[in-house]
Design a protein around this nucleic acid. Structure first.
Lengths: 341, 341
DNA sequence: ACACAGTGTGGGAGCGCTCCCATTGGCGTC
DNA sequence: GACGCCAATGGGAGCGCTCCCACACTGTGT
């Protein structure tokens, strides 16, 4: 269409300045949308930018301004796997959506093995990103402390406890679980069991609390024998279901704290000759693919994962900009009712 | 543990040089593992690096060396969705695994909407990455040409035709499909239908060819009425199945070119009162979560997605380094047999 | 008439690295 | 013993940007 700068390489700020008949500083001001530039000059610069097809050199900018315009999304690999399958892509989509409006790069960092985590720590020490998004942090994880120490802005999703030092964005695990149980009560179920995740995971704890609260709110006693602890895996869900059936054969509903565990429970129920939902109603959590394709399709609590991604990115950008927004954000869940209940 | 550089900020090359009692150039050579440095000097520099906790400033390096040490993974969002759910995370894991051994960053770029694709083109024009990984490129996509024009190294997965200009890494769609059909033949099935993806997608075409070849190899005629074209969606699979049953009620096996379409087909078969696998055997493609959790669990063709990611990254790095490795790599698939066949 | 803000604006001084040329010193050679 | 050669090293010159100080100019008040 037009010459992209005669002398070979990409055009530089300097060249734009010459072309527009102004100084470097002025072009820089225009590029950065900054303050005081006369309307006339601004127009001239913008024209020159357009003609030359000027794109700022990110490295030079980073070097001079001592920032990178990049944030890292840390994925603790092993977890990401069972944490509901589309979770990962949904988070990325959400984060991406927010970043699309800025000029910030998303750098993906996998930290599965211990070796990789060490690399990551090293990496972050190099201050190669302006901020960090942490997904599904685990109990003994040193990363949050490291980040705090290095003074790198960070936002967590899947907090480790009620009082997390870093800002958090989470879904309302408690309310979601409560809604699920409330729904089962509404269907006339009375012997409602629950299969929980590992209770040292805060989210799992919240879901159990939600279960308790919903029963309490309905004036129902909470029988401890109706609570089975599992580990978010299918096999764990199955085992838990077996225990529950042994302890209380009369169960007529199960709230599983994840779809995958619900899938395990379903297999066990089948094996025991229980029909779903006729004999036992089943509700899961996550609303993952598994839920949609289960037989019968599984009623499940949907988390607004993409929105969580968007929100996390937004909060992080605000933090980086030096604003101190809300410390903890809880997003509402939604019960998706299907044939299993 | 030790002082991280007394004067506040991160230590610089210069400071390491002073500390080691050598010149900047020498330190640079050591850092970059480059050529001629005496054993003695190298040791001194390495000691200084360790003591100071020196980490090279990426921006400065990028600016001076005119490279970025970053590659982009372009995700055409809308596609990524139905292209088997874990696809995305598996590719990322593979790519990450390869990059973990280098010092190259993975920058994630979503390009769902047309607007985003334009942004992306703009972005790439800025030469902000050393290379690009393209996943699931579509027929009319201008990206590959743009990249070629800009002279940016790139690698594609999911090529658009047999002779793609850019280097490709794909799974062996044809052989995978053939194996699936062969398997059905081995189970004694004779009226084997297939549900294909959109035939302007090269991979879908290959799978259909595999179906044809397997039948031909077994001396079976290929009846066109046993071929139904769909679109990789569940609903499409369902419709295709309905057509097939109308055209040829005696079908005793179906090879669907994706698990999601197989799920659609299963629903239709159920509705028609056909039992799986007793009346009709069903085989899918992708070996996604859907397959594992279907009822009955679905036999499916597994693609080595993570390995594809690893390979793509490897090939791209080689390209960037100026080597010209294999142009097109085809990775073997694997049939995972479950109860549906 | 003068001083004094207040806008816009130009351009020097780096940011921390790589590239590459110049320099050093040790050693083999005729 | 002078010469050449090469491995090893030092350090200047940028890379393209942002930051910020200094310098016009224009007005306004006295």
């Amino acid at each position: 269409m037009n010459g992209q700068g005669r002398s070979g390489g990409r055009p530089t700020l300097e060249e734009v300045a010459v072309r527009a008949g102004v100084g470097r500083g002025t072009v820089s001001r225009v590029i950065n949308g900054s303050s005081k530039v006369s309307e006339h000059t601004r127009a001239a610069v913008e024209a020159a930018v357009a003609e030359l097809g000027y794109v700022p050199n990110r490295a030079a900018r980073a070097l001079a301004a001592n920032r990178t315009d990049a944030i890292a999304l840390v994925i603790p690999e092993p977890e990401a796997r069972f944490f509901a399958e589309p979770y990962f892509s949904d988070v990325v989509r959400g984060v991406g959506a927010t970043l699309a409006e800025t000029d910030v790069q998303l750098v993906l960092t996998l930290a599965g093995s211990d070796r990789e985590r060490r690399r990551l720590a090293q990496y972050l020490s190099g201050h190669r990103v302006d901020g960090v998004l942490l997904v599904s942090v685990h109990a003994g994880d040193p990363l949050p402390e490291l980040l705090a120490e290095l003074g790198i802005p960070a936002v967590i999703s899947g907090r480790r406890s009620a009082d997390e030092a870093l800002p958090c964005v989470d879904s309302d695990n408690l309310a979601g679980a409560a809604e699920a149980v409330h729904h089962l009560l509404g269907r006339g179920r009375r012997a409602i069991a629950t299969i929980t995740g590992p209770l040292d995971v805060y989210g799992a704890q919240c879901r159990l609390d939600g279960y308790r609260q919903a029963l309490a709110a309905a004036g129902q006693p909470v029988a401890e024998e109706l609570i089975a602890v599992a580990d978010f895996t299918e096999e764990g869900g199955r085992r838990a279901m077996r225990e529950l059936l042994e302890r209380r054969p009369g169960i007529d509903a199960v709230f599983a704290a994840s779809d995958v565990m619900a899938a395990g429970a379903r297999r066990e129920l089948r094996a025991a000759g229980r029909r779903i939902p006729d004999d036992v109603a089943l509700v899961g959590f996550d609303d993952s693919v598994v839920a949609r394709h289960m037989d019968p399709p599984l009623t499940s609590v949907r988390q607004p994962i993409e929105e969580m991604g968007r929100t996390m990115a937004r909060v992080l950008l605000e933090r980086i900009a030096g604003e101190s927004p809300e410390h903890s954000i809880v997003l509402p869940t939604e019960l998706v009712v299907r044939e299993s209940s």
